[in-house]
Amino acid sequence: MNSPALELTNLHKRYGRNVAVDSISLAVEPGTVFGLIGPNGAGKTTTLRMLLDIIRPSGGSARVLGEDPRVGGAALRRRIGYVPGELRMEGRVTGARLLEFYARVSGPVAPGRISGLADRLGCDLSRPVRTLSKGNKQKLGLIQAFMHDPPLLVLDEPTSGLDPLMQREFLGLVREARANGQTVLLSSHVLSEIQQAADKVAVLSAGSIVASGPVDALRLSALRRVRAVLAGTNADEVRVALAPLAPASPPQVDARDGRVVAHVDIEGDIDGLVKTLARFHVAELVIEEPDLEESVLRLYGTTAKEVD
């Protein structure tokens, strides 16, 4: 059996009286995509920085590609592709020149690899870095992480600033990395991103792991928020029809401009909701996931600290 690509044992980080990461333990198998999710302030970024020896833990231990990150040094870091949560890129050099520099630091990059990634992500490498938007700087960050095909990718909020098309392209890159035997540790507060990319996931809140396991086994998508605009009816009739669908959270129903606007939170299967709404004339219908913080609070009854 292969050794874990990442292994955390009672990893702990304290800033004075404030505990940012509270004795977490987990293992990530080689060639898998592991999602680390949680609301802002849950401790995700602190955990990743300890794995990369950017900060030192207050207690516990970590193994990264079989090595202690505190002693692995530059040789270990060259085997890792990293996108930080707060990516800062400035300077008068072009994107191409900056990536050439990163290539010399990280190790061999296959011919055409950089230009191929730039084409896929729609990144103009001829422009000075300081003139780029947040989204285009994020694309440069992704290119430098993926370009040398490292055995481990550590990606902290990697799609920040990217449009939906580029987010889809990023997910394609993650799937290709997994198929290539690379391990990906993906931190995000975007639930759908994790669900599409990850094999396993750990939910982090207030510095502790509150749930972990295969993505399909966790009830992370059980809650949906529905907004329906209905015509030819009244608020009381809609309220009575929707009430049995969400007994724990009564629907909010208001009459506006001759129409009825209903907001209701549904857990699990939405078939009953669809059949109920079919009684009315549906002018608009929006079904969305709540933000991840609300999902964690609702599903796991936890609270988040303001440290990450």
Results as ranks from 00 to 15, higher is better:
S115L: 07
S58R: 11
T94V: 10
E90G: 04
G73V: 10
L132A: 07
L98F: 11
R113G: 03
L76F: 02
G72W: 07
G112Q: 04
G72Y: 09
D124E: 13
G66F: 02
E67D: 09
R92K: 14
R79K: 15
T46Q: 14
T45D: 11
K44S: 07
L98G: 01
G43L: 13
R77H: 12
C123S: 10
R104G: 14
A62I: 07
G85F: 00
E86I: 09
E90M: 05
M89C: 01
C123E: 08
V93L: 13
G73Y: 02
D119V: 02
S106Q: 15
A103D: 06
A42Q: 10
G66D: 13
G135F: 07
L48W: 00
Y82E: 07
I55C: 09
Y82I: 10
Y102P: 03
S133V: 14
L52W: 01
S106D: 12
G60R: 05
R113F: 00
V71P: 00
R120E: 13
D68M: 04
R63L: 08
L48H: 01
G59Y: 06
S58D: 15
E86G: 00
S126Q: 14
Y102L: 07
G72K: 11
E100Q: 15
S133F: 09
T94N: 04
D53H: 13
G107W: 12
V71E: 14
L52V: 10
I80Y: 06
L99E: 09
R120N: 06
G43A: 12
G85K: 09
D53W: 08
R88I: 15
L76T: 06
P84A: 12
A96S: 14
C123T: 06
E90F: 09
L98W: 04
G73R: 01
A75Q: 13
G81V: 07
R88H: 13
G112A: 04
E86H: 07
G95E: 14
L98C: 03
L52C: 06
L87E: 12
E67W: 00
V93W: 04
A103R: 10
S58G: 10
V105D: 07
R79M: 11
A103K: 04
L132G: 01
L51H: 00
L51T: 08
P128W: 09
V93I: 13
G43W: 05
S106V: 05
M50Y: 05
E90V: 12
G66M: 06
R78G: 00
M50K: 13
D53L: 11
R49S: 12
L121N: 05
G91P: 01
L52E: 09
N40Q: 08
P57W: 10
D68L: 02
R127A: 12
E67N: 01
P108I: 13
S126T: 15
R78I: 03
L125A: 07
T94W: 02
G122P: 06
T47V: 15
K44R: 13
V71S: 13
P84W: 06
R63Q: 11
S133R: 12
A75K: 15
D68P: 01
F101K: 10
E67F: 00
T94M: 10
A103W: 06
D124F: 02
G73L: 11
P69Y: 04
G122F: 07
V109W: 01
R77Y: 02
V83G: 02
